[in-house]
């Protein structure tokens, strides 16, 4: 590599390494998004058709009742999932932060569902919530003969079973993030508060929790992101049913793209999902990147 060519090459190596990876990102992320956006403005059905047809697919999408079901399910799931995970996560983090000797063991138990696939979680909860053999049977044997629990197959309540399983899987994650945040609060500050005679409760409410605002922000964003993308859990737990009662945008898109061969409509729904994510993530990323 002593030659001039060698040195010139060496000087450009970093760029030579980064360029193909960056190009891959430009093609497979941005290029593909553009393709999908384009297709969403066409009449494409089984095969892509590149002639623009205006907002046709978006009009079809918004006049499809199933899309409205998917959206309202997303809102229900999103709200409940985020709020419950936040509450459980925060509670557990605060409790675990009380100098507990077996904290490591407890934390491991709280967090292991995060290592599971949503498909596994869905499979287990499908069995636990099984009308007849599941919780219902347990209650009957405990003497509550009249107990009925058929949410899994009840179109009005099935979406809440998705919430139950989702919260079980992800609340430990929220706990871990909050705990990391609590641990980063300066010990000196807490000591000073104690010396000033502030009770532990007061210290938490007035000092610790306000300092957790950025962590809270991150957790909300991460959970929201999980909620919007949720697909596996719904497929494994309810299969989107009964009927399409537990459809979400992600399962809607999949079924119109791969089962019904409605490329244009599927693309339009994917674009709607992308817009939602962008609305949440971009301001967050922007503020995060500016901080570092």
């Amino acid at each position: 590599m002593g030659s001039r060519f060698g040195r010139a090459l060496e000087k450009r190596l970093p760029l030579i390494v980064v360029s193909p990876l960056f190009a891959a990102s430009l093609i497979f992320v941005y290029g593909f998004i553009l393709w999908t956006v384009w297709i969403s403005f066409t009449r494409s059905r089984v095969l892509p058709n590149y002639d623009l047809a205006g907002l046709l697919q978006y009009e079809r999408l918004w006049s499809t009742p199933r899309w409205h079901v998917a959206l309202s399910n997303l809102v229900i799931f999103w709200l409940l999932f985020v709020v419950l995970c936040l509450m459980i996560g925060m509670l557990l983090a605060i409790l675990l932060d009380q100098r507990i000797r077996i904290e490591g063991v407890i934390r491991t138990i709280y967090l292991y569902p995060m290592a599971l696939s949503f498909v596994v979680t869905g499979t287990v909860w499908k069995w636990i919530l099984n009308p007849g053999l599941g919780i219902e049977r347990v209650m009957h044997q405990a003497g509550l003969e009249g107990f009925r629990f058929d949410w899994l197959v009840n179109p009005d309540y099935a979406i809440y079973t998705v919430v139950i399983a989702g919260v079980w899987q992800s609340s430990g994650y929220a706990m871990a993030l909050f705990l990391a945040g609590l641990r980063s609060v300066d010990d000196e500050l807490l000591k000073a508060a104690a010396i000033d005679g502030a009770s532990p409760l007061r210290t938490y409410m007035r000092i610790v929790l306000p300092m957790m605002r950025p962590v809270l922000m991150s957790v909300v964003i991460i959970l929201s992101h999980l909620a919007i993308k949720s697909f596996d859990l719904v497929v494994a737990l309810t299969g989107g049913g009964p009927g399409y009662a537990t459809d979400m945008p992600a399962t809607f898109m999949y079924s119109f793209a791969f089962q019904r061969s409605e490329l244009g409509l599927a693309a339009a729904s994917a674009v709607m999902m992308l817009m939602t994510v962008i609305a949440i993530i971009v301001p967050y990323l922007y503020s995060e990147l500016r901080r570092t």
């Binding site: 992320v29 994917a270 999902m273 990323l285």
Partner: peptide, 22 residues
């Protein structure tokens, strides 16, 4: 470059499913 690549970690993959399948 980094900021542009980072965005790829957040997109809902539904938006790339169709072109990727092709």
């Amino acid at each position: 470059i980094f900021a542009l690549m980072l965005f790829g970690a957040f997109i809902p993959f539904q938006v790339i499913l169709l072109p990727m399948a092709r």
